[in-house]
Design a protein around this nucleic acid. Structure first.
Length: 492
RNA sequence: GGCGGCGUAGCCAAGUGGUCCAAGGCGACGGUUUGCAAAACCGUUAUUCGUCGGUUCGAAUCCGACCGCCGCCUCCA
């Protein structure tokens, strides 16, 4: 069965075939780096990360491009308002490029924690001003754009199929326009390709039309075609960008090149928090750093980054996802269960007898793999794919409890965990660090003393004292677990 | 106002005409284990898919109405 992806352009699940045999080019709209990444970014980029990982699993050579928007994204999309980066930079009294750099690093840091593979290319909009000017020139030459007072606008009326992605038509949009159209525009739905810069605008570049800066939509068209060609296989982004951003990208690119811009448009759905749209004013705006630290009044505790990842994968990328402390807690518990199962398999494999892999188990693993692929082939049904991992957890527990299970059998289970749960879903790690972090060394020593004392008390059947030690450690946030090979501690 | 989507157990969530008298996870409950716990493991947990009506031999799945929620059109991934 072949991979099918829901294409926003056709509104159906279409069989995916790349333009060039065996190779795939993907462009995903990246962040505008004027603040720390939040839960919404996580859903979007984890979703596309899984797409990239799965395509590679299927054997494609994937080129993954995801831009960093560091200029041109205005606070108001009707081509008015301020540049988001410049506005935030002014507030923090730093140069816009310094601000962009700070949040770019922050973004990568968070995405690394979520175990998202780095894009092959992370182009910056500010690094492609020349190419953007060239595209504007082309559009002017071909008659799709016009210049007014040092700004250049795209003439939407010149493109008959404008609106094909979002299912809108120009008349409706003009009639329903809620913002006062700019007097420079011939048509209210026209959009800026190049904006004239006011003298106090820090980010500005010389152009044939005077000093200015590029319109937001321009960068994606330019960088996508520069690195992936005039027609790209897959373009991903958030649903909220379907219009106007992606529609404008199509308009610019197809007007300039005369060929289809994107073959598959993929849009991921939005995030809500406690059932409401996430917004700064609603006090439910949660950054990833806050989630990982538990530093938000909506959260009862901190959550491991991969637990957040698991919650995202638990639902479909085209469905909205409601974040709540309860949902995160549930995902976290499930994530721990998978993690413990993988660790147990690897641990047992080291001491298990050798003797070849169990044929029956191998068959079960093949069946699990087939079920996983079938789910992923169906427009990346990660919820079902994840359920296959839980099937493996159940199988693994049976095997690790049976002392007759061979190392080869356990090795095969580990391999599938690593491949499906690790390579594709990104929630199973290749290595788990068992040792206590260096900073906890002193705590570990103290805990060991108390654990030894408790062991003596238990030996003497002084359970009152033993329980008191355990209770007081619990108060300090340390949980004791009595395992067959001794007592271990962990943070609550 | 225009366009689009959603409503499945206590919670999250898959399924979109029969193989579903509905995956999986969390939680809860019962059990194994334990001195007792924790952790782990096993088992149980929706005669029903927002409401009402229709199409069909057959619907959670298609159609209509209604109720509720959400998104885009205006900054957002």
């Amino acid at each position: 069965m072949a991979l099918k992806l829901h294409n926003s352009l056709t509104r159906t699940k279409d069989e995916f075939k790349p333009l060039e045999e065996g190779r795939v080019g993907i462009y995903v709209c990246g962040p505008t780096v004027y603040g720390h990444a939040h839960l919404g970014h996580a859903k979007s980029y984890v979703s596309f990360d899984v797409l990239v990982r799965y395509l590679r699993y299927l054997g494609y050579r994937v080129t993954y491009v995801q831009n960093i928007t560091d200029v041109g994204h205005l606070t108001d999309d009707a081509d008015e308002g301020e540049d988001k980066i410049a506005k935030a930079a002014a507030k923090e009294h730093v140069h816009p490029m310094a601000l962009a750099e700070l949040y770019t690093r922050s973004y990568f840091e968070d995405m690394d924690k979520l175990n998202c593979v780095r894009p092959d290319i992370s182009p910056r909009a500010s690094g492609h001003i020349i190419e953007q000017i060239e595209l504007v020139k082309t559009l002017l030459e071909k008659g799709y754009a016009y210049e007014v007072n040092g700004s250049v606008y795209f003439d939407v009326a010149k493109l008959k199929d404008y609106g094909k992605l979002s299912g809108r038509n120009i008349e409706e949009m003009v009639a329903g326009a809620r913002v006062e159209p700019s007097p420079d525009k011939r048509n209210p739905v026209d959009f800026a390709l190049w904006k004239k810069a006011e003298p106090n605008h820090i980010m500005q570049w010389p152009s044939p039309w005077g000093l200015g800066y590029p319109g937001w939509h321009l960068e994606c068209s330019v960088m996508a075609m520069k690195y992936l060609g005039k027609t790209i296989d897959i373009h991903g982004g958030g649903l909220e960008n379907q219009f106007p951003h992606h529609e404008c990208e199509i308009a610019q690119s197809e007007a300039a090149n005369g060929v289809p811009f994107v073959r598959f448009w993929l849009h991921n759905n939005m995030v809500t928090v406690d059932g409401q749209k996430m917004g700064k004013s609603l006090n439910n705006f949660i950054t990833l750093k806050q989630a990982f630290a538990g530093d938000h009044e909506r959260l009862n505790r901190y959550y491991e980054p991969l637990a957040v990842r698991q919650l995202i994968l638990n639902s479909h990328y085209r469905s909205p996802l409601d974040f709540s402390d309860a949902a995160l807690y549930a995902a976290s518990s499930g994530y721990q269960r998978i993690t413990e199962a993988v660790k147990a398999v690897r641990k047992h494999a080291k001491t298990a007898p050798s003797g070849g892999a169990d044929k029956d188990i191998l068959d079960q693993l093949d069946a699990a793999k087939a079920k996983f692929e079938e789910a992923m082939n169906d427009d990346l049904n990660t919820a079902v794919a994840l359920s296959v991992l839980f099937d493996l957890v159940r199988l693994a527990s049976k095997l690790t409890e049976d002392s007759g299970t061979t190392a080869e059998t356990l090795g095969a289970v580990d391999q599938l965990f690593t491949q499906l749960g690790g390579d594709v879903l990104g929630i199973v790690q290749n290595e788990y660090i068992e040792s206590v972090a260096a900073s906890d060394e002193a705590v570990d020593k103290l805990a060991q003393i108390l654990i030894a004392q408790r062991a003596e008390a238990r030996k003497a059947k002084n359970f009152a004292q033993a329980d008191a030690i355990r209770a007081r450690l619990d108060e300090a946030g340390i949980v004791l677990e009595d395992k067959p090979d001794g007592t271990q501690w962990r943070w609550k």
